[in-house]
Amino acid sequence: MKYEIILTVNGVAYPVEVDAHASLLHTVRDQVGLTGSKEGCDDSECGACMMLIDGRPVNSCSYLACQADGAEIITVEGLAPGDDLTPLQSAFLAEGGVQCGFCTPGMLISATALLAANPEPTPDEIRVGLSGNLCRCTGYDGIVRAVSKVARG
């Protein structure tokens, strides 16, 4: 059975039609057309699909699109308007926190959620806060430095 729902992504309401079992990730990528959020493991291990739902970090691969009906969803595309970058995004670039880039959208969402909850995390708290996000290139140090840099202001 198909359900008509409204996904509000980065402030824009998108009416979409989905199956009961459709994931939020696939719906945002395939129907809304925002492909910043990635499918890595597809079972909540890697964090590449992470979005904010009403401010909460969520692995969107394992979240039902139907459950996000009416919620405020933020993806990596919505962190800053247009081609602007948030201070966190700039710090990722400056500190070598990006290599292949596949994990970066999820890392940015996790780090954004972390800083919202804890504006001055220690390096250890940053590592714990990002431990649901896997990166196979950077060795994490550049990412932790980038988040530390923003946290210190």
Binding site: A20, D43, S44, C61, S62, Y63, L64, C66, Q67
Partner: peptide, 21 residues
């Protein structure tokens, strides 16, 4: 959904045919 949906994605058990949020 962190048990039910994740478990289905991991292939442990398919999602139930009828769900109530």
């Amino acid at each position: 959904g962190t048990d039910l949906v994740v478990g289905a994605r991991q292939g442990k058990k398919p999602l139930p045919q009828a769900l109530v949020g």
